[in-house]
Every structure is written in structure tokens, then in C-alpha cells.
Simulated assay, not measured.
Amino acid sequence: MNWTDRRQRFRAILSGNRCVHPGSVFDPISARIAEDLGFEIGMFAGSTASLTVLGAPDLIVLTLSEFAGQAYRINRAGNLPLMVDADHGYGNALNAKRTVEELETAGVGGLSLEDTDLPTPFGTAKPRLTSIAEGVGKMKAALAGRQDPALCIAGRTSAVQITGLEDAIARGKAYEEAGVDALFFVGVRTRAELDAISAATRLPLILGGVSGDLTDLAYLSARRVRIALQGHQPFAAAVKAIHDTLRALRDGTPPGKLTGVADAELMKRVTRDSDYGRWTKDFLGG
């Protein structure tokens, strides 16, 4: 696996002049589908990781090893540059350093570390952030844990919706000074907010969950946004399809009359059946 090549392609997006939507992926098959459909990068979120690996909500009960293991399975299945949401780095700054080491080994192209105080502390009713100083310490530790200089590390904050725009900009500027490769802002809802962030910072921008006035790719590109997430609907769609198929079978629908089922050709394509057929012939004499 040429991880550096993927990371260089990821960096090319950040250093380019246009904004792309990543394909939200959660396992090897979904990553192959995203690659086949032409997505430039994949996005593996902590929330979908918790759903996929544990069947649990996004409450930071997933472990680093579980997350890195699934990221590796996704990466080895194809050639799609993968960005991952490393949440808070699974602990303090030393844990964040270890997180980068593990995810780099798993082959990710880029990762984001956030300054939300996670997991939710006892007695906390609303999300809260760590101090800027602690956030800077985590960013520096993450950068120190990087061995391949092509790996992209983004500083992420949800301050816009928790403490306000001014604090979000202060955090972004602090993480820039710490040396991260990009800034990831969650909770930006208006063009005025994005205009202010873009004017006050220098690095490529990543936005989480854009909607409304922030769906115009030309506008986002002009504001230095290079990656704009659209949510993680593919996993929810998969859950719906599985639920409806099993329900139909349970209710007596014959397998041959099920709807919405992948045909044999699609299944062969996403499982790389032709590759395995060739390898069987070459290596087993079959």
C-alpha cells in the first residue's frame, strides 16, 4: 500500500483552488463504492465508526484500537485517500500523539483533532471546550507523532456554536501558529461567519455539515474551503435497507421478490470478483 501517494493526493486537494465533498464511508465496501463513483476522498467519522463497530451512538465509547482497525480495513480495500475524525485524540496530548501514530500506521491521508471536552464529563449538561492552551498542546503533540510529513493534520473546533465566532477565530489562529495543515470548523451556519473566519485565517478550511447558504461550491472555494462534509447519510441508508429487507423476509416475502437488492454484477464489482478470479487462476491453477 502506497500511503504516501494517497496523502499527496489529499494534500493536492487542500492546496488546490476548489472545494470537494468527501464520500462518507464506514467499511471496505462503502469505500470501494465511493472510489468507483469518483469521489476524490473518503471521510470516516467517529460517529459512523461507533455505529459500525459497536452499534452504539456517538458517545466516545469506541476505543482508539477499534477505530484504527476499521480505518485500516477501509484503507486496504482500495486506493481512496481517507480523512478520519480522530475526535479528541482519545485522551490528553500524549494520547493524541499516540492516536496520530496509530492512524498513520493504518494508512489515513488526513485526520482532524478537536478541542471539545470529551468524553462528556460528569454533571455536564452541554458541550464544552478545552482551553486554547490545551488545544494547542494537543496539536503540537499530534504533529510530533507524525512520521510521514505527507500526512495532513487538521485542527478542529466547534466553538462557533458553543462559545461564539470570536472564540472560534482565536482557536483557529492558535492552531495555525501551532503548525497544523488545515482548520476544521463545525457549526458554521452563515456566510458572514465563514467570511470572518476566512479573512482571519490563512490555512485551507474544512467545514462540517454544510447546508443552506453554504452549499454553493463556487462560494466555498473562493473562501478557501477545500473540503465540505455533507453528513453521513450512506450509513443511515444502509441501515434502512437492511431493516426493510429483513422485515420483508420476516413477513414472508420470497427472496426473489425483494426490492432494492444489489444485483449480481454490482456485487461482483464491489467485491473485486474479477481480481480474485485472476489470482485464483494465476496462483492456484484454477
Rank of each mutant, 00 (worst) to 15 (best):
A49L: 11
L51P: 01
G110M: 11
D58W: 11
Q233F: 05
L64I: 05
R98G: 10
A144H: 08
S15W: 06
R73M: 01
G256H: 05
K257V: 08
P119H: 10
Q8P: 00
D167W: 03
G172V: 02
R146F: 15
V84Q: 00
I169N: 07
S211M: 06
R98T: 13
V25T: 01
S30Y: 05
P81Q: 05
L205P: 01
V100K: 06
A133R: 13
G209P: 05
L151R: 12
F67W: 04
S112D: 09
N75W: 02
L151K: 07
A12L: 11
L94M: 11
A170L: 02
M1E: 03
N95G: 03
T253P: 12
A49F: 08
E35A: 14
A218V: 12
L14E: 03
D148C: 04
L220Y: 07
L80G: 00
D115K: 05
D87L: 13
P234K: 08
P57N: 08
I153N: 04
A222V: 03
E134D: 15
P255W: 07
R98K: 14
L207N: 13
R247P: 01
F26A: 07
G212V: 10
F26V: 08
Q161W: 08
G155W: 05
E104G: 04
F235G: 00
L203C: 06
I74V: 09
A200P: 09
G135P: 10
G286Q: 04
V188T: 11
R250S: 05
A68Q: 04
I74T: 02
G89R: 08
K173H: 00
D216P: 00
E104S: 05
S65Y: 07
S274H: 03
R11M: 06
R223K: 01
A199H: 01
R226V: 12
G109D: 03
C19F: 13
A174T: 04
A159Q: 08
E176M: 06
E35S: 11
G107V: 02
P22A: 13
A174Q: 03
F44A: 04
F235H: 06
L59P: 08
A241E: 13
S221P: 00
D273N: 04
T120H: 05
D273E: 07
T99M: 10
E166G: 04
R146Q: 15
